[in-house]
Design a protein around this nucleic acid. Structure first.
Lengths: 357, 357
DNA sequence: CATATCTTCGTTAACGTTACCGTAATTTAT
DNA sequence: ATAAATTACGGTAACGTTAACGAAGATATG
């Protein structure tokens, strides 16, 4: 049933158009040197025959090998979150190697804006055919993708989005909604008069717009369903344990907090503090499937982790890039990962899934 | 940094071995017509050079196109569960078309054992290079894969596994553990003296071993953590609403049930009954992200749905097959999908994920 | 009007592999 | 011994596409 299409090639098109294959090739790759008349004619035949170029032959013949770049933060000692997207990118790299695609991975320090700027400058001149970017620094990332657009280099965002940018797509969580979901989740075990503390831990909070998006979503829930719950906020600008400890201790000394919501993966640092200080009654919700976080999840210090399939973000991001430049596949501007709720009951399956890829 | 390997080809090997490329090709595809001595020599050079065949050129040159088959249940009016794996398989089909792979999809009636047997017979003689199978009928499936092994056709199981079979891999949920997880989940809202009813709805329950695996896991939880909870069971051998209604009504008339656990996607039928009968206080847990189920999840009749990424099962199954026959990639015997807990709070993200693929 | 410069197009050799066909070299049968 | 059959190998045309090279014909320049 179905499928009696004879494989039409560049040759058949040339025959029907009474031209040589070279001319057909020229219009296919829209190079110069073909008159408007014959171009139209050939395009008509191509459309009529529903010609699909044989990418095998294309890649075989073409000397130029595709080059993609990934620009993501390096894994820091405070958080190994980025090792997961990295792993996904490497997986994609292995799979694409056979198909004539090379992937370079460039790492910057997410606490050093300058490291990103200089890296971006380097990457621009290397003539990549596509770039996967984790836009941690908003303004600098916008500058970068503007340059990319001039050079006609498609860019894919992962992990966090910058709205209204002319990037190919964004792959990652709906940050706002993940904050909203966290709020909803927390509402199940919060009493009306309780106080919820939002904790942002980042050296560059003002630049890290994605933390703010989560906070926004979180607050939205409680402004619609106001029940007297008090929402407060604590920004901690150092990521090391001692700093976090000092700041938290100071805050908890004068305020009675029932729930803490940490807007990124540094939740384990808070967990360590709560554990050490014997704060048994404070519920804790945070982000990401990291070893340290799982440790405190098992222990019961962390109640919920919101996860965003970090590995798949890297893998899918590269695949989208590939499908776009090779197959001209059009994708949605936003590709939201599901928001997974990981608890002590189901973390094992999630873990297996991550490792089996 | 890294990667200065010159692309060695069949030509270079031939040169180093002082033979023609034809001879090298013969040993690569281990065909006859080459002496043991030169064969060894060539194999040595291949190993030393770490030669990786260019699959582009291979598929271009090779006239034979790969053919895979999928054998899965057809979507029935009682459940459209299988439309999801089907969609995943079709997705894989589209992607593989360019790479010289055709996928045929064969559907059988999961209520008619005979339809599977005759289908299996048909498929065997068609000379497929790989088969994706949903082994609904245990004994018949074992017969089938034994035939496949004789013919050297790799087989991948999806959705449910048959242990100790020489299949390439199994892709799907850990059925036993998903039952266990359901039990754990239910334990949060069950009181010590409550009664939990396990409901199996299937025309061929004895044959549908995968329902039993879930039940096993479920019961295991309560035998370890016995708290006086009574676990009972109801097998319903007709899948239509009227039959389910009659059986359930009969049971609930004489027994006080607090929680119902439905071992497959037919949970919506039970939900419909509970809804109609006004059983407000019975908690309900079942399987799969189907439209009907989501309807009752939103309504609150169903409390939790356990989901197993059905679409991805079909997609990944085909990909594993492809990677095995094309790249000789070795895979684990079991590839467990994560067990997702879908509630009225997060179903939307799950849905988006399914549709965006 | 001759020459130079474009524009438009055709010819052809790659790319790495497969597989058919032919032919030495070797073994077996007579 | 010679003929026949077998084994081991080489030569080469595909597969569909790319791109370098060159050749006409058209247009412009002096």
């Amino acid at each position: 049933m179905g499928g009696e299409e004879k494989l039409v090639g560049i040759k058949e098109i040339a025959r029907q158009a009474n031209v040589s294959i070279a001319t057909v090739d020229r219009v296919l790759n829209n190079r110069v040197g073909v008159s408007e008349k014959t171009k139209e004619k050939i395009l008509g035949i191509i459309k009529e025959l529903d010609y699909q170029p044989n990418i095998m032959a294309r890649r075989l013949s073409s000397k130029k090998t595709l080059k993609f770049a990934a620009i993501i933060p390096s894994v820091s000692q405070e958080s190994d979150y980025w090792s997961a997207p990295l792993k996904g990118i490497q997986q994609a790299s292995i799979e694409m190697k056979d198909y004539g695609v090379g992937i370079d991975i460039h790492l910057f320090d997410q606490n050093e804006k300058e490291s990103f700027i200089s890296l971006a400058k380097e990457v621009l001149v290397k003539g990549y055919n596509g770039i996967l970017l984790a836009p941690m620094f908003e303004a600098e990332s916008i500058d970068f993708i503007n340059e990319c657009e001039k050079l006609k280099i498609p860019v894919v965002f992962i992990n966090s989005d910058i709205k209204n940018q002319k990037t190919l797509t964004y792959i990652g969580p709906d940050l706002y909604q993940s904050g909203y979901l966290s709020a909803h989740l927390i509402s199940y075990f919060v009493k009306d008069a309780d106080q919820i503390l939002i904790v942002n831990i980042s050296k560059e909070i003002d630049r890290h717009h994605h933390l703010l998006r989560k906070e926004e979503g979180f607050r939205k829930y409680y402004t619609t369903k106001q029940r007297g719950t008090k929402i407060s906020k604590l920004d901690i600008h150092s990521t090391d344990y001692q700093s976090v400890k000092i700041e938290l201790a100071k805050y908890l000394e004068r305020e009675k907090v029932n729930v803490i919501f940490v807007t990124n993966s540094r939740v384990s640092t808070v967990a360590e503090f709560l554990d050490e200080g014997g704060y048994k009654n404070i519920k804790l919700v945070g982000y990401d499937f990291l070893e340290k976080n799982i440790f405190y999840l098992k222990k019961g210090t962390i109640d919920f982790l919101i996860c965003q399939k970090p590995q798949e973000q890297g893998y899918k991001g590269m695949m989208v890039l590939y499908n776009y430049v090779v197959h001209s596949t059009i994708v949605d501007r936003e590709y939201f990962m599901p928001i997974d709720i990981v608890t002590t009951e189901n973390y094992l399956y999630y873990k297996n899934y991550l490792n089996q890829n």
